[in-house]
Design a protein around this nucleic acid. Structure first.
Lengths: 282, 282
DNA sequence: CGTTCGGTTGAGTAGGCTCAAGCTTAGTGG
DNA sequence: CCACTAAGCTTGAGCCTACTCAACCGAACG
């Protein structure tokens, strides 16, 4: 972390959590958007060269260590941006401490809320995160004059909305086993897409979108090992369960040979079809 | 229902459910947008006269009887539109019949999904509904050339996303009593706003947005009687509960004098603060 | 080498579900 | 007008899933 460019703000110094392996190569592509790994999928996906130059003028990269807050609920929302690498969780907390994770954001996803004064979720780095940030005010100004930017943001927001509703079905109506299986499939799908980020797919749904679990069969996340970006506690808070229940379900999946656990925070899916059956698709 | 204009399609003939009081006056404002009660809050809110004329050219009013489907999950999405009056529920169903209501839409809210081939929810009229519909293809064409339309749709979609996430917290982390209290406050707030629809508020969050429950104190829905647009079963499916649990909670609120039930489908909130406390805001 | 954090596992409990019966209301037809 | 029906609602009894409380484990770290 010594060859930082001037535009690179690094919040990860002395990161509270052990987050090895912050994607080194991201430092190389600073400044220009051309070689950016999320260029084709992020909010800038539809922008032409001119528009990209305008965005470039107001962007700044920022690294956030695992566990660090990106913005807090209720605070004035000043910054928005795209995730270049890593995972961000959006969470809400009741006054008595009960917490619900209401969104998981991966590479290329957009973080922050335009056109509102204050955030209504906390956004926290679930892993070490690299972001391409914009001040909200100039970004909103650019939104107004750049239909390609607004169009892409609308698309991404619609996809997030679909994902949130899919998640509502899982949290509201599925059993503990189905919930955990659903989450594991989601993580497998999204973590692997994030790794294979060079591929320029045009339309990428975002957030907690379970349908990816089905599409991603054969992608290198299922079959390969997946580093879980959430603790048992966080998984529980995403699913409306307790950490003990999540742990028991994981152990049960492991015992029945559906998944393999490598330590506690890494997983390999052995039998994708069985896991999908457990997730109760339909 | 005999003075229908040519542009008025009526799906409610022989409506399967008892839906008295379909807002008669809506028939009067057909054709022109000027006197439309949702003009200032719907997707057309930011449109100028020229843009409005273009929208006017592709719109058609449609009445849907309570219980009737507006579109079905998986079917090709051909129509979108604004709710002029009534309540629409968005729901998802698992193959074994478990159902989750993932959105409630009221007057001025936008129904349907642009830029996707197929719907991923069912949309069903919860009450008799009057809609201002557009064919999806011409509407999307207009979206591309009308920034004011796209901007407003983005705003509304962002508000829906906020609402869906708020709902996720309720479904995932609240107790049965808190869930039911939260839903009653939401319904009180949204049903009263729908009635006082002439007021031209610029920024109106949409959907299952609970924060309205707090804002709407003193509005004429709280204090006045509220016609519940959902059966106990539907309330349960919105909250991730069973209908019996919902019924028990309602009875309990009634016994403790927090609400009054007028028949089973009409309610008056007696003690708003108590109900808010029961809803567990924080 | 002790501490801390995250995870696992067990035992007992309870909140909400299931099953079941009976009630209310509105609509229908004799 | 009133029995009949059906849909929606209420209430009760018992059960089960997931929660609570608690002990223990293992890895990482100072």
């Amino acid at each position: 972390m010594d060859d930082q460019s001037a535009a690179f703000r690094d919040d990860a110094v002395g990161a509270p959590t052990t987050g090895a392996g912050l994607a080194r190569q991201n430092q190389r592509l600073l400044g220009r958007c051309g070689p950016c790994p999320i260029r084709k999928r992020a909010v800038c996906a539809l922008c032409d060269a001119t528009e990209l130059r305008r965005l470039d003028a107001i962007k700044s990269y920022r690294r956030v260590g695992a566990g660090r807050e990106i913005f807090a609920s209720g605070e004035e929302s000043v910054a928005v941006g795209s995730i270049v690498s890593g995972v961000v969780r959006l969470e809400k907390t009741l006054s008595d401490g009960r917490r619900q994770i209401v969104g998981l954001l991966f590479a290329a996803d957009f973080v922050g809320r335009v056109r509102t004064e204050r955030a209504d979720c906390d956004a926290v780095a679930a892993t070490d995160v690299t972001m391409c940030m914009f001040q909200r005010a100039p970004f909103e100004a650019l939104l107004k004059t750049t239909p390609n930017l607004e169009r892409r943001l609308l698309d991404m927001t619609l996809d997030e909305l679909d994902a949130a509703r899919e998640w509502l079905l899982i949290v509201g109506r599925k059993s503990a086993a189905e919930k955990v299986a659903s989450l594991l499939l989601l993580l497998a799908a999204r973590m692997s897409v994030a790794r294979a980020s060079a591929s320029g797919v045009g339309r990428e749904p975002l957030g907690l979108d379970l349908r990816h679990g089905v599409d991603a069969r054969g992608a290198d996340g299922i079959g390969g090992a997946i580093a879980l970006p959430l603790t048992r506690d966080e998984m529980a808070d995403a699913l409306g369960l307790t950490l003990e229940t999540v742990s028991r379900q994981m152990s049960s999946f492991k015992r029945s040979g559906v998944i393999e656990l490598i330590g506690a925070r890494e997983m390999r899916i052995i039998d994708t079809e069985a896991l999908e059956a457990l997730a109760g698709f339909g």
